[in-house]
Computed example of a mutant assay.
Amino acid sequence: MFVAPPGYQPVYSPSIPYLGPVYGGLREGSSIYIQGSIPENITRFFMNLLCGQSESSDVSLHFNPRFDGWDKVVFNSRQDGSWKSEEKIRDMPFSKGKGFEMVVMVTSKGYQIKVNGKDFHTFKHRLPVERVCGIHIAGDVSIQTINVIGVRLQGSEDFSCLLWGMGGQPVYNPPVPYSNMIPGGMSPKRTIIIRGMVPNGANRMSINFMVSRSRDVAFHMNPRVREGIVVRNSKIGGNWGQEDRELIFPPLFLRCLFAVGIRGLRCL
């Protein structure tokens, strides 16, 4: 059974309102990736980054889209029970009845918000980001995924890349290119999760699941960031097959889950 380490386990399809922890807290370089959808009859929803374990805790970031005839997004913070001055952005990055992908990136200046791959607003820090330890989401919204990337786990080194599933043992910050055997090979329901960050200016990367003896490639995954596509393929007897191309949007963060029912593979 696959069990991701705390802080790297995404939250899938949470009930709304949602109140959950951010294991290890946030820091500069951390990112929160949220995938969801907006109902047709939306009025408003909000996401709070909490400096505590309850809804009444201090709020480092209050993100509040409002569909009220004067569509806008309100940013704010709360300290000692009191809301501070609002920042109102008279623009709406969300569409009624449509899905969205939102990224909150922690920078030295503040929380940089991207929606559907486009920069929206940076909310300057008012409270120390290291105090953040929870996420609260409520209102008219449906959430498919919440994923926190780049946290610092207690008792572990800081790591930006994790490979989990090699015989149950994680591999932290491997050099790239990386090559290793998969103990016992692949089998149905076996999962390998690779987590990392795509640097600015990245062009492409590739992940190959190889048959160790023949060097055939059972699964080739090639995200091409600048083109905004993911190419998938296989190579048998030295010949590549027909490419399977899929558009990705936004091409900023890649979350890869593999469950390939083939034995004797080598991960390159």
Rank of each mutant, 00 (worst) to 15 (best):
Q35I: 13
I38S: 12
P39G: 11
E40Q: 15
I42E: 14
F45W: 15
F45K: 10
F45S: 12
M47N: 07
N48D: 15
G52D: 12
S54I: 09
E55L: 13
E55S: 14
S56W: 06
D58M: 05
D58Y: 08
S60P: 06
S60A: 15
L61D: 13
L61M: 15
H62R: 12
F63L: 14
P65F: 06
R66C: 09
R66Y: 09
R66E: 13
G69F: 04
W70E: 13
V74P: 06
F75H: 14
S77M: 05
S77Y: 09
S77N: 08
R78K: 15
D80K: 13
G81I: 02
S82R: 08
K84I: 01
I89D: 00
R90S: 04
D91F: 02
M92C: 00
K96F: 02
K98I: 00
K98G: 00
M102N: 03
M102V: 02
M102A: 01
M105P: 00
T107R: 02
S108H: 06
K109A: 12
G110I: 08
Q112H: 04
Q112G: 00
K114P: 00
N116A: 03
K118T: 11
F120P: 05
F120A: 03
F120R: 06
F120S: 07
H121F: 14
H121K: 13
T122V: 13
F123Y: 15
P128Q: 11
G134K: 06
I135P: 05
H136R: 09
Q144Y: 08
I146H: 03
I146L: 10
V148S: 01
V148A: 01
I149T: 02
G150Q: 07
